[in-house]
Design a protein around this nucleic acid. Structure first.
Lengths: 149, 149
DNA sequence: TGCTATTAAATCGCGCACAATTTAAAATGC
DNA sequence: GCATTTTAAATTGTGCGCGATTTAATAGCA
């Protein structure tokens, strides 16, 4: 038969699991981004924060966190690194001193131009059609929503 | 118009990106697993290593790494933790002293029984049909392969 | 008003991932 | 046989993610 009666038919079989497919696809994607974002001196999570701020500047830490599903334990040190890199400033809100507003510097705004090329490079690396990518995106979005109910 | 001329129509728009959908779905999945695997005192990557060893015991570090797309820098400390937990032993190969063979202990083999329930719980948490999950798995598998060409 | 409860960030500790380097063993070439 | 190259694992350093806790400010309420 097979090793330990555990193979293709078992639910524990690695290659049958969606979650491993998800996990390893994500790792592979990270590697593609790592290479592309090296040019911009950004990590992928840092790039995500910049996307959020390019869409709407001046958000609070928790505002960014809601958008990316990350909390302050992850974001605070990440934002400090981006601040050190000169891409943004962090300042306590005037109205509510508990909150920290994150504001892009000119350099941070300027970086957007150079980032424009990234999505196309990634889409190219996937070797998928726009239709395939859209379907996958929507499926993943649905999955994430269901998992966080 | 909109903030910085950058919104729904831009390729930089967060919610249009497959990669962010992938990233955040993976994080959500991790959280589901974290809760389930807490029972077994395993992290998700540790669980993956156990899956690999339950399928075939006695593999080398690089063998496990090929299966999971991870390298020794990730696996060595992880395997040491599993060894400390009493789930496996690491021993230099007799024929080739460069290689380290990873062998399950009785306790490690026994854990398999308790892990049997995990996949079903996860599938349940996704609230997806088996067909949806299979399609997603195959799509993700395809994506990973294309990204690592 | 003053006390308690809630909220927002920050901090701490741990476990990945991975680039880069090191160590040691085996394979190769002359 | 011996030096060179290749290979496997380990090590080092950095940056996430996140559970758990802490710090500080605001809100709520008697």
């Amino acid at each position: 038969m097979n090793d330990n009666g555990n193979s293709q038919e078992s639910l524990l079989a690695l290659d049958r699991q969606v979650c491993f497919a998800l996990y390893s696809a994500q790792l592979a994607m990270s590697k593609v981004y790592r290479k592309l974002l090296k040019e911009l001196d950004l990590t992928y999570p840092q790039y995500l924060v910049m996307l959020v701020l390019w869409e709407e500047d001046g958000q609070t830490v928790s505002g960014i966190g809601e958008r990316l599903f990350l909390d302050s334990a992850t974001l605070t040190p990440l934002l400090k690194r981006l601040e050190t890199a000169g891409l943004l400033r962090r300042q306590r809100s005037q109205e509510d001193e508990r909150q920290v507003e994150v504001v892009l510097t000119e350099q941070g705004q300027a970086l957007r131009e150079r980032a424009e090329a990234v999505p196309e490079s990634v889409m190219c690396a996937t070797q998928c059609s726009p239709e395939e990518l859209e379907r996958l995106r929507d499926d993943l979005h649905k999955l994430r929503q269901r998992l966080t109910d």
